[in-house]
């Protein structure tokens, strides 16, 4: 059999907010190419078969984080999911789980975006250093403390993998907590206290039961589960230290 004649079935989630009250699945036959990813197949569909098909994508190289979808039930970047992994098919393509659906595979990200800005994911200084004093210096060892957590591309695959986020509307979720931790661990940042109130609440780290799938599905190896566990250890240390009648040397916050 030559690859020219081979096809694969895509079962695509369809939902139109103006006309549909229920989502449905539509099956398409798509040409199979060994070097095609699921996103290529969707783009072929949109160009050649059905222009109404809606989904987000941009870079096609695992950097922009916009083409995340459920592929056969698991959250994947579709630019990174080769058709050959799922042969002989069919391949089921759905919007990321845990989010409201705007249309087809387009999810509503408002909740994620609000929570992300809430934790102030940027460097906070009590007092800005004057430009004349140069950059904030950082050693390679200090950089290594948070570098892994800084690789997040906000693709929200970790949210789709998280059963806690699915059920708990207030839960901040993996990526937001990992990014909060990324800035808390940054030696140049002084915003720890401003973020603590939010991330040390029940709706912050404490709703997490360490399922660990957020880290398993992350295309950038950010390991949000580890970030959350480390924040739990810090919050617990702080809780018991604050019960002491004195502040141990070097422990003041």
């Amino acid at each position: 059999m030559t690859t020219e004649t081979m096809t694969v079935t895509l079962e695509v989630f369809r939902y139109h907010p103006d006309t549909d009250s229920e989502p449905s699945y539509q099956s398409y036959e798509v040409p199979y190419r060994e070097e095609w990813v699921v996103l290529d197949a969707l783009n072929w569909l949109k160009d050649e078969v059905d222009g109404t098909l809606s989904y987000r994508w941009s870079c096609r190289m695992g950097v922009c984080g916009s083409c995340g979808m459920m592929v056969n039930g698991y959250p994947r970047l579709t630019c990174n999911a080769f058709l050959r992994e799922f042969m002989p098919g069919p391949i089921r393509v759905e919007p990321l789980r845990g989010f409201p659906v705007e249309r087809d595979m387009v999810t509503v990200l408002d909740d994620f975006m609000e929570k992300l800005t809430d934790v102030k994911p940027y460097i906070i200084r009590e007092e800005e250093q004057s430009l004349d004093d140069g950059e904030y210096l950082q050693s390679p060892s200090q950089l290594a403390d948070f570098k892994q957590f800084s690789m997040c591309i906000n693709c929200t695959l970790c949210y789709a993998a998280c059963p806690v986020y699915e059920h708990e509307d207030e839960f901040l979720g993996p990526a937001v907590l990992a990014l909060a931790q990324r800035y808390n661990l940054d030696s140049r940042d002084q915003g720890n206290e401003q973020r603590q109130q939010l991330i040390w609440a029940d709706e912050g780290i404490w709703d997490c039961t360490f399922v660990g799938e957020c880290s398993a599905v992350c295309p950038k190896d950010v390991d949000p589960a580890a970030a959350i566990q480390q924040a739990k250890v810090e919050a617990t240390n702080n809780f018991f230290i604050s019960l002491l009648p004195f502040t141990p040397p070097g422990m003041g916050r």
């Binding site: 609440a201 739990k232 919050a235 617990t236 809780f239 018991f240």
Partner: peptide, 15 residues
Amino acid sequence: MRPSNEPFWWAMFGA
């Protein structure tokens, strides 16, 4: 958001 008392329970869970 109110402060959590989870650290207390989590410490015993961890130990």
